[in-house]
Amino acid sequence: MKKSKLLMGLSILTVLGVILVAADHIDAPSTTGTTADIADFYAFEPTEGSNNTVFAVDLQSNILPDLAYGTFDEDVLTEINIDTDNDLVEDLVIQAIPRNGTMYFFGPYAPATTGLDGTVLTDYPLGAVEISANTAIVETTSDGVSLFAGPRQDAFFFDFFQFNKVIGGEAPEGFLPPEEASDPFDGTNTMSLVVEIPNTMLGTTTGQNALGLTVYKTWVTTNRKQ
């Protein structure tokens, strides 16, 4: 089993269940505003009754399209961790790391070690895709895995300024109705990684969500080269 590049975990965002989503945008002080900062993580079925699962990871929020927006950092490894037996320990990981304008994906496979440290195991290539710029590029492998990497419009909607007024006691009226609220995230990008993968490659799962549906328990970590 070939190993390369031992890394230390920096940031983590958890989603329990395949259909739940989470918004983050501000991580621990060591990663906030850096190329390892996780903005959002989504996991869902692409269509009802599909036998595939989509994982979408957004890194580096608030990237303005008119600027030379964030490129993926070649020293940062992103890991999608998947728990299939309901013990909250990753049984499989899918990894993504960029090199020279291409995003390389590995897995899904059982990691050599669990927890925040990660090691790139190059014996398990999943596929690769050119990192998109102005036009979205999607690569589909012979195994039916679809891959994307590049900037995408930030999907997060939040009236951040009114929120600060509410928690500061300056807005007794509370939050504004949708037609009056502002969205400072509108028009900004994140750097996105998307993997659509057949469930047969993820194995079975014993986890359940709040609706009683059987799901994978999954979370994301970013790791920087040490």
Rank of each mutant, 00 (worst) to 15 (best):
E45H: 15
G127S: 07
A171Y: 08
T218S: 11
F55H: 05
D183E: 11
T190W: 02
L6K: 14
Y109L: 03
N62E: 11
T102N: 04
V57I: 15
P184N: 03
Q153D: 15
A28I: 14
T200P: 02
D183N: 15
S50R: 06
T114R: 14
V120E: 09
M8A: 09
P98G: 02
E170L: 15
A56E: 11
E79V: 14
A43K: 09
T78R: 02
P111E: 00
S50E: 02
R224W: 05
G212I: 12
G187C: 04
P108T: 08
G150N: 06
D85S: 00
E90D: 09
L7Y: 14
A112N: 11
P111Y: 01
V18R: 09
A28C: 06
V76W: 03
L64H: 13
S142G: 03
I12L: 12
P29R: 05
A210D: 10
K225T: 12
G70K: 08
D123R: 07
K2T: 13
N86Y: 04
F175E: 10
D117H: 06
D37L: 02
A36F: 07
E196I: 12
F55N: 04
T114L: 00
P184M: 06
I38S: 04
N164E: 12
Q60V: 14
K3M: 11
P184V: 09
F148T: 00
G9A: 10
V220W: 07
V76L: 00
G101D: 02
F156L: 09
Y124F: 15
D123E: 13
P108K: 09
T205V: 08
D75W: 01
L116N: 06
A210Y: 10
G115M: 08
F157Q: 05
T119G: 00
L147V: 07
P125C: 06
N223G: 04
G33H: 11
V194T: 14
D87N: 15
I197G: 04
Y42Q: 09
N100G: 02
T84F: 00
L6D: 13
E74C: 03
I26K: 10
V220Y: 04
T114C: 04
S182Q: 14
L10D: 12
H25E: 15
F157R: 11
N51V: 10
T53F: 05
N86P: 03
T200V: 11
V93C: 08
D40A: 04
A56F: 05
I167Y: 01
L67T: 13
K2C: 00
G207F: 08
M191T: 10
L6T: 14
T205K: 05
D40E: 12
Q95E: 15
E139P: 02
E180R: 14
F148K: 06
Y109C: 03
A210W: 09
G144R: 03
L7T: 15
G207T: 10
V166C: 09
N134S: 13
P29Q: 03
P177A: 01
I167K: 05
T31I: 14
L59T: 09
T188R: 05
D40L: 12
G70M: 04
I19P: 00
